[in-house]
Design a protein around this nucleic acid. Structure first.
Length: 293
DNA sequence: CTTACGGCCTGGGTGC
DNA sequence: TGCACCCAGGCCGTAA
């Protein structure tokens, strides 16, 4: 599942081959996940890729039009769950579910493969600072601790939901939200507004640490994620809670639990990450110090 | 406005 | 062999 570290890894790979390259031809197969396929077929051939960037979970190709007009066009790609963007030698065998082919002027071909087609591609004729990207929140790796705290201040939503909300923090996803919360020892269902300052500080540090480590290890290859050269990441070997329901917590040995928050599976350690119920609610002193639920 | 939730898109994996 | 079902992430509509 491409989240921030996976997209960052793909971007860094593409940055070594794409800038300066001209797109000679475009071939589209299935187009139901492309917002404006006609515009792509019309505008991309002949244009040059100036830069490749990550914006949240989006890849952005900045383009220079062949027609010389200096309007900054861009191609926006979201990998969804199963999207892959890989450069191939021309004529390499085409794997199933490959829907988009960009022929480059160095003989290579950039191909987009997406089994589920939960990804999306969009051509932006004007500036990239428009619509789609405009609503996205802070990049968690660029945010200072102060900015990070301000983004959560007073929010009564559950912390996990806020970490997943792209208008709060762009790029966070399910894996890294769970891993960060485990590291910070914060239960995913805690309301952000109820977290103590030291917990928020810990969360900020954990998010930074987890994301940087994941980038260093080139992402998590859970199902079939691979980078722009088709290579797998290794951060899945460092997962402490994600998809580890019933297995032992690396810190305390308790069985990892799973709850649904914001419609997503959330993995956590019931002992290291105390549930909101277990702490906030006053209960009779006689009551046994109970566990789960 | 904020938050929660259900449904939809697609197809691989699983279990009967 | 077949097939119903679950699940994943983003997004949208609806309701409180």
């Amino acid at each position: 599942m491409p989240e921030l570290p996976e997209v960052e890894t793909v971007v860094r790979g593409l940055q070594t081959v794409l800038p300066g390259r001209r797109i000679l031809a475009v071939r589209l197969d299935k187009t139901d996940f492309i917002e404006n396929p006609e515009a792509i077929e019309e505008e991309l051939p002949g244009s040059r890729i100036i830069a490749v960037r990550r914006y949240g979970k989006f890849l952005v190709f900045d383009l220079e039009s062949p027609k010389g007009n200096s309007r900054a066009a861009a191609l926006l790609i979201h990998l969804g769950m199963t999207g892959k963007l890989i450069t191939h030698p021309a004529g390499a065998p085409v794997v199933p579910h490959t829907h988009v082919f960009f022929s480059l002027d160095d003989g290579r071909e950039l191909r987009y493969t997406d089994i589920r087609r939960f990804g999306s591609i969009r051509f932006l004729p004007e500036s990239t600072s428009s619509s789609a990207l405009g609503k996205l929140g802070l990049d968690p790796l660029e945010a200072t601790q102060t900015e990070f705290l301000a983004q959560l201040h007073g929010r009564r939503a559950r912390i996990k939901a806020l970490l997943l909300d792209q208008t709060v923090f762009r790029g966070m996803g399910n894996i890294y939200a769970d891993e960060s919360l485990w590291r910070a020892r914060i239960h995913p269902a805690r309301l952000a507004t109820n977290l103590r300052e030291d917990q928020l500080h810990r969360l900020y540090g954990s998010v930074q640490h987890i994301l940087n480590e994941a980038i260093r290890l080139k992402g998590s290859s859970i199902s079939d994620y691979v980078d722009s050269e088709g290579k797998r990441g290794e951060f899945q070997l460092r997962h402490r809670v994600y998809q580890r329901k019933g297995e032992k917590c690396f810190r305390c040995g308790s069985a990892i639990g799973r709850v649904i928050i914001a419609g997503r599976s959330s993995y956590f350690c019931p002992r290291c990450q105390r549930s909101p119920r277990a702490r906030g609610v006053k209960r009779p002193a006689s009551s046994t110090r109970t566990k789960s639920r």
